[in-house]
C-alpha cells in the first residue's frame, strides 16, 4: 500500500492516479498479448501444436473435462489437501514456535533442528511418505503439512522472541502469571510474524500436495498432469498447468484477504512510541 502524497498540487496527484491506471492496463494488456501471441503462433505454425497446443484448444479440452466432472473433482481434491495441509501446518507450527517462549532452553536446543529441517528438501521424502501413508488423501495432506509446519514454527518463534522485554516486565509488575503474559502479550505480538508467513506457506503447501499426487495418486490435478504426460496427451497437461496456475493465484489472493482481515485485528502500528 502506498501512502497518498498530501502536499502535492492536485495536478500532480491526478497524474499519479492516471499512471497507476496505466500500470494496470499494461499488466492485463501483457497477459492478453501473450495469450494472443500463443494462439497466433500455433495457428501460423511457428509453434508445434503437439507440444504447445493453443489457448483455444486448451480451453476446449478444459470445458470437455469440466462437463464430464473429472476436472472439477481433481480441482476439489487438490484444493482440499492443500488447504488442509496449510491449515494444520500453520496452526501446529505456530503453536510449537510460540510455546518455545516458555522455555529458553528448549528453544535453544530446537533452533538448529528447525534450521536444518527447514533446509531439508522435504519433497524428496515424498516417495517414503506415499509408501508409509498410502496413495490416498492422507499422504498428500501430510506432505503439504510437512512443507509448512517448520516455516510456521520459525515465524512464530521469531515473533515470540521479538516481544518487547519492557512490556513483559510491565505485565509481570501488574501481577500477571506466565500463562497470562503468553496469551495477552506473546501471542498477539507474534501475530504479525505468523501472518507474514502465510503467503509463502500456501504456495509451499500446494507444491507438497502436487508432488504427492505426482508420486502416486488416483485423483488430483497432479495425477491428471502425470497421467496426461505418460499418454502423450499434452493438451491435457496444459489444461492441468493452467488450472493449477489459476488455482494458486486464487489461493494466494484468499490468503492476502485473510492477512488483511487478521492484521486489522492485530494492528501492527506499534512502531510509534
Amino acid at each position: 500500500m502506498t501512502k497518498p502524497v498530501r502536499d502535492l498540487p492536485s495536478g500532480v496527484q491526478e497524474e499519479k492516479r492516471l499512471s497507476r491506471h496505466a500500470v494496470n492496463l499494461w499488466r492485463w494488456g501483457l497477459l492478453i498479448a501473450l495469450i494472443a501471441l500463443w494462439e497466433l503462433g500455433a495457428r501460423l505454425g511457428w509453434l508445434d501444436p503437439f507440444f504447445f497446443s493453443s489457448p483455444t484448444e486448451i480451453f476446449r479440452t478444459a470445458v470437455t473435462k469440466w462437463q464430464t466432472g473429472d476436472l472439477w473433482r481433481d480441482i476439489a481434491y487438490t484444493s482440499a489437501s492443500t488447504l488442509l495441509g496449510f491449515a494444520l501446518g500453520t496452526v501446529i507450527g505456530s503453536l510449537i514456535g510460540l510455546l518455545f517462549w516458555f522455555s529458553r532452553r528448549a528453544a535453544l536446543v530446537a533452533e538448529p533442528w528447525l534450521v536444518v529441517l527447514n533446509a531439508l528438501p522435504k519433497l524428496a521424502l515424498a516417495p517414503v511418505l506415499v509408501i508409509l501413508f498410502g496413495i490416498g488423501f492422507s499422504s498428500k495432506v501430510i506432505l503439504a503439512f510437512l512443507m509448512t509446519v517448520i516455516t510456521a514454527a520459525i515465524s512464530a518463534w521469531s515473533g515470540a522472541k521479538a516481544v518487547d522485554p519492557a512490556l513483559t516486565t510491565l505485565l509481570f509488575s501488574l501481577g500477571a502469571k506466565r500463562r497470562q503474559v503468553f496469551t495477552l502479550l506473546v501471542v498477539p505480538s507474534a501475530m504479525p510474524w505468523i501472518i507474514s508467513g502465510l503467503r509463502v506457506n500456501i504456495a509451499l503447501s500446494m507444491a507438497g500436495s502436487i508432488v504427492g499426487e505426482f508420486i502416486a495418486s488416483d485423483r488430483g490435478l497432479g495425477r491428471m498432469i502425470v497421467y496426461a504426460g505418460t499418454t502423450f496427451d499434452l493438451k491435457l497437461v496444459w489444461v492441468g498447468v493452467v488450472v493449477l496456475s489459476i488455482l494458486s493465484v486464487l489461493m494466494y489472493l484468499a490468503v492476502v484477504l485473510l492477512e488483511n482481515l487478521l492484521s486489522r485485528r492485530w494492528s501492527a502500528e506499534q512502531n510509534q512510541t
Binding site: 510491565l170 500477571a176 502479550l185
Partner: peptide
C-alpha cells in the same frame, strides 16, 4: 510482583487493545 503499581517512561500500551482495555489491564 504485583504488590505495587509501576509506571515507566515508555507508555507500554498494548497496540492491539483499545485505551479502555489497556487501562483496565
Amino acid at each position: 510482583a504485583g504488590q505495587v503499581g509501576y509506571m515507566l517512561q515508555k507508555d507500554l500500551l498494548l497496540p492491539w487493545r483499545t485505551i479502555e482495555d489497556n487501562i483496565t489491564l
